[in-house]
Design a protein around this nucleic acid. Structure first.
Lengths: 335, 335
DNA sequence: CTGTTAGCGCGTTCAA
DNA sequence: TTGAACGCGCTAACAG
């Protein structure tokens, strides 16, 4: 900053020592007691007054350097332009700020290379921890994180090879809700439309689907980068097989399937029943609205942040945070 | 970090001075020449090798402190969970990283208080500049920014009282496109559904609407926090007035109006024609798809970043960046 | 009880 | 190629 004013300036101006200014700045306690360093109210007020007048802004760089803490956490999401992650981002932002942390957001677009790169970028910024949604196929980087000295929490997915701290929903249970919903509405011939991405959320849902409807129950996969075309193909099959109920395993496939069905003049919720995972405001256009599995996003954000704070605290106290790898499993609701 | 290794460690290990290590680290040029500080290739390679082996990570805090630059910019958006801003966020993220900057994202949820608060938070992190979408009613804080020594660029909106650096679309022109589109499709009786928020994007659209269709042309306003209810009321009016074409001034009002119409059994694109601003994947469900005004989001991101870089560079060179307040106006397209 | 001195953290950079 | 000062704020140790 052109001529940002420092603690030194305000010390000179107030006619006191630098140290005293620092003390005061770190004891901006209300009118109560508990001042670790005692300073006479008069000088304290004067210092505060001078600081205000000069628009003093402590240099976070200096503070970080001295204290060895940045209070920054890296938040690596799949795609900020997806509502699902957008909501999580917003919630995390609030929670982290409430705890004095600043989030550094990154999106991977489900590209493992980018996942690796943003971890590197975040590390260069000295993040104290990570909350991440690992891109499909980025096992290598998750292991790298695990080997590092930076605590992290995985959300939305888990990482099979090794156990890592995770916060996610009970996808198998959620799928049971979805299938039951279709059955109760009269569907007899149910298909699942999933993402081709091999991430635990999808595979868990698929597994649960087959457990309920048999190993032969039809599952269609949409590629992350070819959702529309693949949806067309899937719908062709669905119609050919006289499917009367479809579960879509995420909102993007959900919307794609709806589009493909409508394009063919199929009446949704009449000719074919739908139930989806994750919200899209498209769902409420139909009559009755398309039911969907609602993940507790706020809770995911809150739990993952709390989890990370715990790990950071452990590390701070010299404990072995690597030993903690619990999974926090939350229940999803059908709406 | 527990025992993060510093430049000193690698100096000791390599048997050279600290300064030399620093030089080498700042001259990681390829095998070409141009080394500002020349170092014998042997020692250079040895240093680089040791650094790699020890996983040396320079402390960004120390670097920031010493160089007086953070390479961080604050990006203040309305709401990360809105697709419009999500896309902008993603684009800005990429561009900023490509230029060696790190974005610090904040959402205001259109709350002026929060807008003020996040500016403060960002300042505490020593951001070098801002790219902001000022919340409705936050003139006070924009002026505060203007009085500060931190360059900033406003996007999506402009700020009437004073001129500030801005990047936005030609909303009046865009509205002409929208109205003409409805007219060409045969609409004779057109209404506008806008946001009650008093931000320039909305008022410009409203103004243009009335310029084309007369001062009596009906405009309905939806409150930011009462979109659904207000949409119901608006639709009641729209039906009572036998409106046959509706422009919605943003995607959220657009979706709300669609819902309200469908709830009443009105056939969209048949009983009533719609054209909207901004994208929603709801639009393509209809036949024909609902046309919409597409803002060049990538371009907005690119231009605003470039603009900010320019301002930062000016400041760096001691020029008066406050003197620059140009508006960059981009054209929107009808899709 | 109130206030000061001085060294530190880590990388950068100038003078030697 | 190196020594040493420096940027800014924190804090242990100490003095009045």
């Amino acid at each position: 900053m052109a001529k940002s004013i420092t603690i030194k300036d305000i010390a000179r101006e107030a006619g006191v020592s630098i140290a005293l200014v620092s003390f005061v700045m770190n004891n901006r306690v209300g009118a109560d007691g508990k001042q670790k360093y005692r300073v006479s109210p008069t000088t304290r007020d004067k210092i505060l007054e001078v600081a205000r007048q000069m628009h003093y802004q402590p240099s976070s760089a200096a503070r970080m350097l001295r204290k060895g803490r940045t209070h920054v956490v890296g938040v690596i999401l799949s795609d900020l332009s997806n509502l699902f992650y957008g909501v999580i981002a917003k919630e995390l932002e609030m929670i982290l700020y409430q705890h004095g942390y600043t989030p550094l957001f990154f999106s991977t677009e489900e590209d493992p290379e980018r996942f690796g790169r943003v971890i590197q970028l975040a590390s260069e910024r000295d993040v104290e921890g990570f909350i991440v949604v690992p891109a499909a196929g980025s096992a290598k980087y998750v292991e790298q994180l695990q080997a590092s000295e930076t605590p992290f929490v995985v959300i939305d997915r888990y990482y099979p090879p090794h156990s890592v701290p995770s916060v996610l929903v009970d996808n198998e249970d959620a799928m049971r809700l979805a299938v039951r919903n279709l059955q109760e509405r009269g569907a007899r011939n149910i298909a699942l439309v999933s993402y081709a991405m091999r991430i635990s959320s999808m595979t868990d849902r698929e597994k649960s689907f087959r457990e309920q409807l048999g190993e032969q129950a039809p599952i269609y996969f949409l590629g992350f980068n070819s959702v529309e075309e693949d949806a067309e193909k899937a719908v062709d099959q669905i119609l050919a097989l006289h499917i009367d109920g479809v579960v879509t395993a995420s909102n993007i496939p959900g919307v794609a399937i709806i589009k493909a069905l409508m394009r063919r003049g199929i009446r949704i919720q009449q000719d074919i029943l739908l139930t989806s995972f994750d919200f899209s405001n498209t769902y409420s256009l139909f009559n009755p609205p398309i039911p969907y599995i609602q993940q507790p996003l706020k809770q995911i954000a809150a739990e993952s942040a709390a989890y990370l704070f715990k790990l950071i605290a452990m590390k701070e106290q010299g404990q072995d945070f690597h030993a903690v790898t619990d999974h926090i499993v939350l229940k999803a609701r059908l709406v």
